[in-house]
Write a protein that binds this DNA or RNA. Structure first.
Lengths: 197, 197
DNA sequence: GGAGTTAATGAGTAATCGCTCATTTTTCAA
DNA sequence: TTGAAAAATGAGCGATTACTCATTAACTCC
């Protein structure tokens, strides 16, 4: 072995890609400019990724991993499904504010129409893991006895919307408003929302 | 006056743009190819739109208009805010299935990071109109007495998610699943969801 | 039918695109 | 210190990009 990688190239490339997408939008991303932003030569990019699409997808995958890790870390200290899901929900929203560029790239790729982008093994694993958390809520009797995908849609969609707003406005989300929204969402999917009280 | 417009050029361009975006994804849209798809010359595009961005935004605006019109038409025959909002909700989901390409382009532009895309007068008007429908629900006492934006997030986000899924899978959404999801969402935002019954 | 007007054309422009590869630089083992 | 091996370079490739403009085609009015 000789000449090992100097520095974390993929990470530098990831940062540069995020900056590029944030700067010029999804319809004008340029590999040459990403290289310039990273302070690397174009050739180096193509050492690590075969094509532009592969680079974008790799960054996307890393961001999804990061979001998922953030959510699971937030859930870790909690026990019951209710408080775990709550922690994950707020972690997701928080991610949009803490890493706006990352979240926006993920959203951009999510809106990507080429369907081969979406059937990835790791992405499926991540998704399944989230569904399992919800399943736990159903099993514990804190959530309505509906299919997990149904509950996921109701629970996750508003969080994603809020994260997107946070990442675009770059203003910290109003904590009270977030609590209110979570309350309403939870009212919808909880088996026994503090009713008749 | 001489030589009036032959055919509805903007409409042809709209269809071609939608097809192009659906085919190549947001990161590779080409004006020349759009012209070819529309069976028009590039020059003609630039008679109607100053830049590529202007073309994309114009199509986006038309789609948003279309979605909004579809929702309002669905609401029209209904009276109470509850049934109006329900009709609008299902109309939005249905749009994703009926016009997948249109919906996907709208989602793509929504994920656009350049913020000048988002502060448009007509878009604001459309948005306000939707908020007003929700306000009516609050005033009528069928919805919780929370800020309309809060309720909107809980109500609209899952519908958008479902519409996106419908537009990507191109399979008709499971009607029962949709009903279930709407039930949960409504449970969350209704002032008195059939409780203690 | 001819004059006037304008929509539509598409070859062409400079710039930029994604990407390659011969070359240089950096590293490690001997 | 040296030679082999791999990492990094960036000028440059052909293709494609967004966009222009001199020209042509199609229409109206007199």
């Amino acid at each position: 072995m000789a000449r090992p990688v100097a520095g974390d190239k993929p990470k530098e490339l990831r940062l540069a890609t995020l900056a590029e997408v944030a700067a010029v939008g999804s319809t004008a991303v340029s590999v040459n400019r990403i290289a310039a932003r990273a302070g690397l030569s174009v050739g180096t990019i193509y050492r690590y990724y075969k094509t532009k699409d592969e680079l974008l997808f790799a960054v996307y995958l890393e961001v999804k991993r990061d979001i998922h890790r953030t959510m699971m870390d937030a859930a870790a200290p909690h026990d019951g499904a209710a408080s775990r899901l709550r922690a994950m929900w707020f972690a997701l929203v928080g991610y949009g504010f803490d890493a706006p560029q990352d979240f926006l790239l993920a959203e951009m790729m999510n809106a990507e129409t080429r369907n081969d982008v979406h059937d990835n093994k790791e992405l499926n694993r991540i998704h399944t893991e989230v569904l399992l958390e919800i399943q736990k809520g159903v099993d514990e009797g804190v959530l309505v006895a509906y299919p997990v995908e149904t509950i996921e849609t109701v629970l996750a969609s508003p969080a994603i919307t809020l994260a997107r707003h946070a990442s675009m406005s770059k203003k910290p989300a109003d904590r009270e408003a977030l609590e209110r929204i979570f309350t309403l969402v939870w009212r919808g999917i909880a088996r026994d929302p503090e009713r008749c009280s």
